[in-house]
Nucleic acid binder design. Structure first.
Lengths: 201, 201
DNA sequence: AAAAATATTAACTATTTGGTTAAATCATAT
DNA sequence: ATATGATTTAACCAAATAGTTAATATTTTT
């Protein structure tokens, strides 16, 4: 049970845990209340409905997670340095938050229309700068002329996928948790290798 | 509503549709019955419980989907040819079944212990042959000595991720369905490029 | 200290949901 | 034709679940 902190904060933390683990449909208000150590009526006192609580939690998770991902892109490094830096910090972030991507992807696919409005303003801006910088280096002949979207997608895919597919991969490769963690750690050098080898002239 | 075919087959098809779209927790027996055009009691007459129906559907989906993925690996092509062939047919398969991967990944993460037993025998075998062949080509100095698991993971990641992250990617890249389909189509050459460029000596 | 506002609880409600039952219908074999 | 077994239906049930209410306790304001 979550102790100390304000009731509202305890509800939010409990709700995050339960929603991330079970998803919206699998989450139970009673379980959230129990985890927060309060009465179920308190959830409605503070958040009115399961829907309202969920959107609060989703927005909170999403707006904490996406900027953390994108912020590396505003520094004054070269494209190559940025990619290396990004992949390393992104995988590190995922190591501490392994269940967030699948949660976001699943909820987004369950209810795309409604959730799109929740994410719209949080995703577009940060990539622009990086896109322009890449175009510059392409013009200079430093990197190959590849569709920007494909590069971003590949980087994210290679970072995120092992976390969303962990149970399947562990089963396929018969690996225990320890060796899987090593497998992930190794990707901090493998993924930049793969990407840079591909885009560099 | 699904017509013709035996009742059992109609239930299975309806259940597939609903479970894939909504997930186990979001699926309703009534919705499956309606879609199959039958009484709700029939679901229980044929499958006893939601759990039993779900496992039937899951096993069916999983055992149709995984072998289709792996079978390309038993031919007598070179590693390079196999990779090209695999990526192409895998992405094509995903274009016709775009929602299956997220369904499998979500259910596997919701209930890993129980579902692991359902998939165990269906995943391990087919990769072995490919792994040995790769080791051979590594020894011959044709391809770089890279952890086999990393190669497989990267290939699958690059194929699957755009499908599981589609709503997010479309939002980030502001792309309509048509341009997203083109984006996917382009990956049939981009992904082999990326992988082969990386592993070839 | 009294009043007012805020927070908390226990008990309750309405609805949804997976599952059951018993009767009716249909198909098949004798 | 008729008895037998399989299939289908409508009505029902019990448990679970989101949400409510009204009374009580606590904190804050005056």
């Amino acid at each position: 049970m979550i102790e100390d902190k304000s009731t509202e904060q305890r509800i939010i933390e409990a709700a995050k845990q339960v929603f991330i683990e079970k998803g919206y449909d699998g989450a139970r208000m009673q379980e959230i209340a129990d985890l927060a150590g309060i009465n179920k009526a308190m959830l409605h006192y503070y958040f009115r409905s399961k829907d309202k609580l969920f959107f609060t939690i989703f927005d909170d998770i999403f707006s904490r997670f996406m900027p953390a991902v994108q912020k590396g892109f505003t520094s004054n490094m070269s494209v190559e340095e940025k990619i290396k830096f990004f992949i390393n910090s992104y995988i590190t972030l995922l190591q501490s938050n392994p269940y967030i991507p699948l949660f976001i992807l699943h909820e987004l696919s369950r209810n795309p229309e409604e959730l799109k409005t929740h994410i719209h303003d949080k995703v577009t801006s940060n990539f622009k700068i990086f896109q322009e910088q890449m175009q510059l280096e392409i013009n200079q002949g430093l990197i190959k002329p590849i569709d920007f979207r494909q590069i971003v997608t590949n980087i994210i895919a290679l970072c995120v996928f092992p976390f969303v597919a962990r149970p399947l991969l562990q089963e396929v490769f018969s690996s225990d948790n320890e060796s899987f963690d090593k497998f992930i750690e190794a990707r901090k050098t493998i993924v930049p290798d793969l990407i840079l080898n591909w885009i560099k002239m």
